[in-house]
Amino acid sequence: MEKESVIEIRNLNKSFGSNHVLTNFEMDLLKGENLAVLGKSGSGKSVLIKCIIGLYFPEQGSIKLFDRDISEFDHYEWDRVRQRIGFLFQSNALYDSMTIRENLEFPLRRHELKHLTDKETENLIIDTLSNVGLEHTIDMMPSELSGGMRKRIALARALILKPEIILYDEPTTGLDPITSREISHLILEVQKKYNTSSIIISHDMSCINIASNRIIMLIEGRCYAQGDYDHLKNMEDEKVKEFFL
């Protein structure tokens, strides 16, 4: 039986001035899979997921989230859909002026804190932090944490609303190889534990190998090739081979 798509992109075009970043880009994210989008710096990977989450507006083409075209969404519908999508930013984007507790509480407060008591909120925050192994940092400020810890906290914040889809924007950038590997395994754990579907934007081959089930190669704004890690690694195409050297 064919798996259902949770994200469906058709003929997506996006440019900034004369710079065409995405040209007739097409992809599907199937339920329960970790899809890696691989491409060089500046190839439009981050633009792609920012179009998916509504931070950028596509010029042409369609993006369907959970079978609904995002062009039909109004402010309230975006709100509801974004509850179902977690986003891990490249720079972590933790709020500097808030403690870790407040950072995790922020999306809860916005979406569903009304239904939770203080005790339930506290338990949910501690539970989510313990999933990334950092419950002891709850009252710390982001500036007191290392790069790897901040990445984990950002992941915890993305997970707190129990999303069905997680978008990872360069999850291992700026981390040492050991921490990178830990984060990659954490991504895999999250997929298994929460049964999430994910898009992982990266050019870190080790992370992609560990965390993804399928890879799309984004070259010249198009989906140039796709398949699993071994399939792409054995391809003879020069442009694909470059990434595996």
């Binding site: 920012k50 989450i53 509504g54 931070l55 709100d79 974004r82 509850q83 999508i85 986003f87 930013f89 490249q90 720079s91 972590n92 984007a93 933790l94 709020y95 500097d96 922020f106 999306p107 916005r110 979406h111």
Partner: peptide
Amino acid sequence: TEQIDAMEVSG
């Protein structure tokens, strides 16, 4: 540092 984007994504 994308905190404003993060806010938007948080609803």
